[in-house]
Design a protein around this nucleic acid. Sequence first.
DNA 1: TGTTGTTTTAAACGTATGTTTGAAACAATC
DNA 2: GATTGTTTCAAACATACGTTTAAAACAACA
Lengths: 213, 213
Amino acid sequence: MAQKDTVKSILNAAEELFSERGFAETSLRNITTKAGVNLAAVNYHFGSKKELIQAVFARFLGPFSEQLEENLAHLESGLPGRVPAMEELLLLLSQTALSSGYHDSPRRLGIFMRLLGLAYSQGQGHLRRFLQKEYGRVFNIYMKLVTAATPELSDEERFWRIHFMLGATVFTLSGADSLSAMAEYDLGKGSDIAQVVDKLVPFLAAGVNAPHR
Amino acid sequence: MAQKDTVKSILNAAEELFSERGFAETSLRNITTKAGVNLAAVNYHFGSKKELIQAVFARFLGPFSEQLEENLAHLESGLPGRVPAMEELLLLLSQTALSSGYHDSPRRLGIFMRLLGLAYSQGQGHLRRFLQKEYGRVFNIYMKLVTAATPELSDEERFWRIHFMLGATVFTLSGADSLSAMAEYDLGKGSDIAQVVDKLVPFLAAGVNAPHR
DNA sequence: TGTTGTTTTAAACGTATGTTTGAAACAATC
DNA sequence: GATTGTTTCAAACATACGTTTAAAACAACA
């Protein structure tokens, strides 16, 4: 078993277990057992549990942010100076997230959304700092476009509606599999997430464009 | 110090610490220190940490679900047979949650939303079972009304849009204080939550009523 | 083949957790 | 005012955690 396999096994196991039980509830012994590697391997390859958590995020966000930046540049180059509509921006984001470039999305997207929700709800101050420093740049580019797409909103209104959207997205995509399990109807297992995203975008678009008193 | 004071101190401390750091990250020693009581008091009065967690939820949800049921009955009695609109139902829910009957809302509502988010994101299977058994009845009554208010939606579409709303609500009200802290503008501290709810309702109403392809 | 650098392994370290215990302090009842 | 039942307290319990260690196993190259 080569070096890369150990690292990859740990990342896979950690990603899954973290998303199922949370960070604090998942022990290194859980992870290394599931990964079939020695307990000390985590500290050897990653340094600490915190750095493992960051590595799990980086493995997803690295390729994602690169692809997003590329897609944004492509959008800009299409018709320079044009202002893309909000729904267009949402579709670009969802398509980037669902694109099966590096990660075997869309299954992976659900797992990652669960992790993102955890990062928000649980303290994890170190993770917030890590994400800000590492991916804040692309995030700001996207936000500039969102602002341009919603000129009729005050900064305050826009700020909150962005978080309304973020909340609806993270929450539902987090629990998409467990939620659709408790629904009465049944749909194909493979593309659960993609179908939910299809339903989500119109909801969000209507929300941001809602008349505000 | 009478018996009730110890119990109440523990519940207050636990509620706050849980909402700040999560369940697993909060130790009984943290709680009892903050509450100014002996470590063993939790196990003496509540039995275990799990039962403490359930008690924290019960203290909020008990009065809330009673009040909600009352308000629903009052709504029904107003014009028997009438079908309330979706926005009406949302307002009833938010007003019930914000009514300062038992708990000193709205501050308390933010804390509780954070707990609810945690209950969803972290495993906490015992909590899910507890909430279902204890408050499932009122929940179902409300859901019947939601179904009547959105007749044009398929069961599938309605199911997902309800969760979109739930996600936007839990996520934003969870982090309302920390979120408004990172915004550029400033608003009165006391009624943060109430103001966010005011902005939230139109967003949600527009979302559920969005045209679906 | 022998040597060097990397990776894996089993074991132990120190610390923190939830829970239990038995005695002390207290409150209420007769 | 002694006796009962309840509540508090300091201390210890067993267990689980993240991390470290030093030796073994392995790989690559001379």
